[in-house]
Amino acid sequence: MTPMRRMVLSRLAQVPLILLAVYTLTFALAWLIPGNPLQRDEGRRPPAAIAEAMQAQWNLDDPWTFYWSYLGDVSGVSWLLGDRTGAVLEFGPSLRHENWTVGEIISGQLPVSMTLGLAAMVLAVVGGVTLGTLGGLRPDTWVDRLTGSVAVIGVSIPAFVIGTALLMAGGVWLEWFPIGGWGSWRHLLLPAVALSLPFAAWIARLTRQGVIEEMRADYVRTARAKGLPEHTVVTRHVLPNALLPVLSYLGPATAAALTGSFVIEKVFAIPGLGMHFVDAVLGKDLTMIMGIVLVYSTMLVLLNLAVDVLYAWVDPRITVGAAS
C-alpha cells in the first residue's frame, strides 16, 4: 500500500471518532442554552399540561434519553437494529420549523451555501492571484501600491457594508441585479463578490510575497539567461512555485466559504445554511444544531483531507505520510 493510500484510509477511519466527539460536545453545549425550543419567549403561554406534553414528545425533559435516541437516529444504528424505518440516517424534524425535517433543510440549503462559496473562491483566486502577481512583479511601484490598497480595502470593510453598497449600486441604481433571493447567476454575482473580497485580499498578499521571493531565485536567472521571454518565465517557472502557499491557504478558506456566511446570507437574503445555523442556536433548535454541526464537521474533515491529497498531486515533490 502506498503511503498516500495508508494516510487516506487512516484519516477516514478517524472520522467516526471525530464525529462522536463533536456530537457529544455540541450536545452538551446546546443543552446548556437556556430556555425551551418549543416555547415562545413572549406572548401567551399554553396551559402547564400542554407545555409538559410538548417536552415529553421530543424527549426534552431528559437529556440522556435525547442524547442516546438521537445518536441512534443520526448514526443509523437504530435503523440497523430495526427500531425505525425510513432513511438510514435520520436527523428528525426541526423543533422550531416542524413542517420540515433537518435532513430536508440541510439538503436544500447546503447547495446554496456551497454554490455561493465556490463562486466566491473562484473570484478570490482569479482576482487575488492577478493582483498579487502584478504587485509582486513590480514591488514598491505605483502598481504595487494600488493593488496593495485594493487588498487592504477588501480585508478591512465589513461584509454588511460592502453588501449593502453593492445592492444599492447594482440593484437600486443600475437595476442590473435583483435585490436578494436566489436562483440565477444574477442573484449570485453580487454576494459572491462581497464574500470573495477578504479571501481575494489574503490570496493577493500570499501571491505577492511568493512572486517576490521566487523572482530572486537562481532558476529564474537561468531561465532568463537562456533567453526565455519574460511572460514565459513568470507563467512557467515563477507562478507554479509562488502559488504553493496559496494552495495550502485554499483548503481552510474554501471550507469557510462553503459552510456559509451568516452576514452575506442575511444581507442578500440568500437561503443558505450559515444564517439558519445562527438562528437555530439562538432558538435552541436542538435537532437543527446537531444536524448542521455534524454535516459541517464531516465536510471540514473531508475537505482538509482533500487538500492534503491535492497538494501532493500538484507538487509531486511532496510525499504525504513519509514524514510521519
Binding site: L167, G180, K266
Partner: peptide, 14 residues
Amino acid sequence: SFPDPNTALLAFRS
C-alpha cells in the same frame, strides 16, 4: 423571506 430589514426596503424601492 428577507432576514435583513435594509435589504427588504431596497427590494421595495426597486
